[in-house]
Every structure is written in structure tokens, then in C-alpha cells.
Amino acid sequence: MRLPEKRWYDYLWIASLMYLSLGFFNILFAWLGLICFVVPLAIALIGGNKAYCNKYCGRGQLFELIGGRLRLSLNKKPPEFLRAVWFRYAFLTFFMTMFLLMIYATYLVFAGAGLKEAVTLLWMFKLPWNWADVSFVSPWIAQFAFGFYGVMLTSSVLGLLTMVLFKPRSWCVYCPMGTMTQGICVLKNRKDKADGGKSQADCNAAQGPCQ
């Protein structure tokens, strides 16, 4: 039996926790969240794999830690719809639509509209967030930060809720980035499938959907 060795990336949950905390001190730190968008997409597009989800996702690690080690998860089987392809892609579509609306709001501020110093939680609740000084940057930069932090906070709250109700990493089942990167990997590796799917050697070595 192999004992898992701790690597540097096993501590990325600290970065995730710091990210959420820093947003309370100054909303402009929200821009750092773009790393969680760009890196997984780049890995999937260039490498054709989900190494980000599998190794580097600090949020997944954080849920694993809180729900698993700290036992704050009920560890129940999630409802079947959560893992259904239709639900995952519907949630991705919804999430991306809200993301694009946030980009549009940023554009409006760029075009001259007033800055709204609020973070929208769960796409409905506007939380006043006007204690940080954002006067030293262009209003659209601050607007994007407010919007993006709302996206990150919303996904964290949803992740925490499903962590408590179901299994620690339940968020990973319907995470829009996970769905998107898996879709990219499937498309990227479609050529292999078109050539006859997994080779018999693969099927012999690895039992997945060969079953």
C-alpha cells in the first residue's frame, strides 16, 4: 500500500481561504480569482486533462478539509440529477450567463455609469461592500472586482451548502469550470474516439467506460 506524500499543491486550500478573506479587506483582490478561471482552461486546452481539478483546485481541497477532516459534511449520497449531464450543462449555461451579465455591468461602468459598491450573493442578494478604498483605480476595475467576487462568493456558498448536505466535494460534481474543462477534454480527445475509441490495451489496463 502506498502512503500519499504531501506535495506543495496539497496546501492550495490556504490560497483559497486567503482569497475569500482578502476580499473582505479590499475588493480589488477579487481580480486574483481570474487565476481559477484561466489556469484550468489553459490546462484543459493545452494539456487535454483536468489536472487543475485533480491536483491544484484549492476550493476542492478546502471542502475536503472542512467536510471530511472536520466532519462537517453529512456524507450523504447526492441526488442523481446533480451529476446528470443535462443539469451540469444547464448550470454551466446559467453560470456563464450571469458571468456575462457581470461583464456587461463592468462595461456600463467603463462607458460612464456609476460604480455600484455591492457584492451580489446567490444572484439575488445585494450586500453593501463600501468599506474598502477603490478610488485609486478606474471605476470599471472596481466594478469587475465587485462582480467577480460575487461570483466567487456565490460558488463558495453553494459549495459549502452541498458540502454539508451531501459529500465534501459535492461542488466538484456541478462546478461550471469542472464541467467546462471535462467538455474540452472530451472534444480534444474526440479524435481518439473517432479512431475506434480506447484501444484494447487501454481497456485491459483501465476499467472505465469500457464496461
Partner: peptide, 22 residues
Amino acid sequence: CVACGSCVKVCPTGAITIYQGM
């Protein structure tokens, strides 16, 4: 399977891999 890799981390024999992110 959503290819999240949770199973890979807990497998004591290293029997599971995520096949091409799929």
C-alpha cells in the same frame, strides 16, 4: 463520472487514474 479526482487521492494502491480528463 465527473473526473474530479477525489477517488485518485484516496486509493491506497494507486489503481485509479483520470483518463485524459474525461
